[in-house]
Design a protein around this nucleic acid. Structure first.
Lengths: 143, 143
DNA sequence: ATCATTGCAAACACTTTGCATACGC
DNA sequence: GCGTATGCAAAGTGTTTGCAATGAT
């Protein structure tokens, strides 16, 4: 989906239709949220934000929808923070960094040669996660 | 600690003493378990196995002990399986692979150039986790 | 009318906390 | 005896499940 195109509900509907996912209102809103918030939100964040707009939204629906999106491969999830699962509209393998002080998660734009391998030590690789932890540049500044 | 040396309780006691961790019986047993089971056990596995030997052992003690070991940097933990935390006596950065069919976790003996960097995009890195997911060689064989 | 989606409430699994007891020096 | 380690039970947190209500075609 072209970044420059506006995320109209019609475009999103089309997008889900192509993936054979019934484009219900809630699903469209959750997809839109993920596309517009590349900050690796948790279920809780999505719930807090979207329930302002959709008063009757339940967490179950968010769980259901995210599982569906995951299964269909249109989103991915990270476990860089051991306490919660974060969701990411970007499914291409990339590197994440989490600050152990402030908890911020950054995308790292670093090519990793491991991403090119399909078989490693006999195992077939389908997913790559690289998690770095430490002190982020902002926290380093303020130290 | 030299692999060839036997893991006597005395050696373990000495080891914890050096790290300024009071070497209680439970702590020694849990440390010994981690050293002898490099299979990335969960709290539950440690509890199931060790409570056979130590009838009064509680999970709280295992949680306490593992947090302490983590804090002191003598073990590390992995979140490759989003549903549970696994513990690893190996604290050197290395690569893990999990099979999405059988759930087995393998250590991958692969050098990764990212491990050599201390600063990436301005952030100070103190921990590296590389998680690969896919189908393990055993499951590939049986497919 | 039928089938899928939604949402509440309960169940679940894992982890942490509070506090009383036991242990070691 | 004092400070730490331990362990039970309860509370907390994040996620899943069962099932009834709602919605779309």
């Amino acid at each position: 989906m072209n970044k420059r195109k506006e995320l109209t509900m019609d475009k999103l509907r089309e997008y889900l239709d192509k993936k054979n996912i019934h484009p219900s209102y809630h699903r469209l809103k959750i997809l839109k949220y993920l596309m517009e918030h590349k900050t690796h939100p948790t279920v809780d964040m999505i719930y807090k934000d979207l329930s302002k707009e959709i008063a009757t939204l339940s967490k179950t629906t968010i769980y259901n929808t995210l599982s569906l999106f995951l299964k269909e491969g249109i989103i991915s999830c990270l476990t860089i923070d051991e306490n919660k699962i974060m969701y990411d509209y970007n499914t291409k393998p990339h590197v994440h960094f989490i600050c152990i002080k402030c908890g911020c998660v950054y995308d790292i734009h670093l090519k990793c040669p491991i991403f090119d391998k399909e078989i490693i030590e006999g195992h077939k690789i389908t997913e790559y996660h690289i998690y770095l932890k430490g002190i982020c540049k902002e926290c380093l500044k303020n130290a």
